[in-house]
Simulated assay, not measured.
Amino acid sequence: MLQLQKGKYFGVQNKVIHLDNLVITDTEYTHDRVDWHTHQNPYFTFLLAGNMQETNKKETYECSEGTLLFHNWQDAHCNVKHPGYTRGFHIELEQDFFERYQLPLNKMEGSTMLNNPVFKLLFRNMYMQTRYTAAIENLSISESLFKVFGLLTHVGELETARQPAWVKKIREVLHEDNATSLSWDGLAAIAQVHPVHLSRQFPKYFNTTVGDYLKKLRIEQAAGLLVQTGMPLTQISYECGFADQSHFIRCFKKDVGVSPLQYRKIISAR
């Protein structure tokens, strides 16, 4: 089976950045089909545009703009690119990264799809940093990755522990297509718990407040609409549940690092 060496992916690499023990690439996928293969190092893939299917030994993922995957180094997988322009952002981590910072690579097996909007917005922000070479700092990128692995470890520990029934129910609902239209009272009703109890317990299982989680879901939805449609900002802010366009722009820039229009321009550039 083919093993791709450090920093190599199937396609045209628009940009490659080496930062100490990290390799960051921006790749346009050009192969309609990619046979089974592995990679030399663990890495994250964040799909910037397009649609593709990824299959590993356990399951198949349908991936669209905004999909985030973590692949361990021993994970064998194959891919089918659906018609159209498809582009991915990769952060590859050499073994030294895990050894230096004592991160639990051995606890992560195969491929994992990460649906949490907190993770996704961290990757959108890191991608924006890589667009401006002078602003790229190893410290900043590494700090974001520490947050990701810290959250992954915390989530893994919680999933192996006993959880209240409402946690699974809420997690499923939050990842549905219409999750951005949910309200505080609606979530409490779904969980069948008192709103005050939900407010106190939610951060324990989701690493942020209910309000912040819903806001990040809305920003994620907006980022997808910015790339996939030509909707004006006013309509996007309305569709995603923001009070007004100004509020949407402020929230988007805070989490992603650039304004919505800048983001659309950068992602759409080929």
Rank of each mutant, 00 (worst) to 15 (best):
residue 106 N to G: 01
residue 100 R to I: 00
residue 253 K to L: 01
residue 67 T to E: 07
residue 147 K to E: 11
residue 186 G to I: 05
residue 91 I to M: 05
residue 184 W to H: 13
residue 58 K to H: 10
residue 100 R to N: 11
residue 126 M to D: 09
residue 123 F to S: 05
residue 260 P to V: 02
residue 119 F to S: 06
residue 261 L to Y: 03
residue 206 F to W: 09
residue 55 T to V: 09
residue 89 F to A: 09
residue 1 M to V: 08
residue 154 H to T: 14
residue 78 C to T: 12
residue 67 T to C: 09
residue 215 K to Q: 15
residue 102 Q to P: 00
residue 198 L to T: 09
residue 100 R to Q: 14
residue 64 S to Y: 07
residue 64 S to F: 04
residue 171 R to I: 12
residue 122 L to C: 05
residue 69 L to F: 04
residue 215 K to G: 08
residue 85 Y to N: 01
residue 176 E to L: 13
residue 234 T to D: 07
residue 265 K to R: 06
residue 15 K to N: 10
residue 76 A to L: 08
residue 257 G to W: 12
residue 266 I to Q: 09
residue 229 T to M: 02
residue 89 F to G: 06
residue 44 F to S: 09
residue 63 C to A: 15
residue 13 Q to F: 01
residue 28 E to L: 14
residue 151 L to S: 11
residue 69 L to C: 11
residue 152 L to Q: 05
residue 151 L to T: 07
residue 120 K to A: 11
residue 99 E to R: 12
residue 12 V to N: 13
residue 36 W to G: 03
residue 61 Y to T: 01
residue 5 Q to L: 10
residue 221 Q to W: 02
residue 43 Y to R: 05
residue 255 D to A: 13
residue 260 P to H: 01
residue 160 T to M: 13
residue 135 A to E: 14
residue 202 F to M: 07
residue 178 N to Y: 13
residue 102 Q to S: 13
residue 233 L to K: 08
residue 114 L to I: 12
residue 249 I to R: 12
residue 247 H to A: 12
residue 42 P to M: 00
residue 214 L to M: 15
residue 39 H to D: 01
residue 6 K to F: 01
residue 13 Q to C: 14
residue 103 L to N: 01
residue 8 K to Q: 13
residue 70 F to K: 00
residue 100 R to C: 04
residue 174 L to I: 08
residue 212 D to V: 14
residue 222 A to Y: 03
residue 172 E to P: 01
residue 71 H to K: 04
residue 46 F to M: 09
residue 223 A to D: 08
residue 132 Y to F: 14
residue 81 K to R: 14
residue 88 G to L: 08
residue 110 G to T: 02
residue 1 M to I: 05
residue 222 A to M: 03
residue 81 K to H: 05
residue 90 H to N: 15
residue 30 T to P: 01
residue 79 N to G: 10
residue 49 A to Q: 08
residue 71 H to I: 02
residue 114 L to G: 08
residue 97 F to Q: 02
residue 185 D to R: 13
residue 89 F to Q: 02
residue 55 T to I: 07
residue 187 L to D: 02
residue 103 L to E: 01
residue 16 V to F: 12
residue 181 S to M: 07
residue 55 T to H: 09
residue 257 G to P: 08
residue 5 Q to P: 00
residue 92 E to L: 01
residue 119 F to R: 02
residue 70 F to H: 10
residue 49 A to I: 04
residue 155 V to E: 08
residue 102 Q to M: 11
residue 4 L to M: 11
residue 68 L to T: 06
residue 95 Q to R: 05
residue 140 S to I: 11
residue 191 A to W: 07
residue 179 A to D: 01
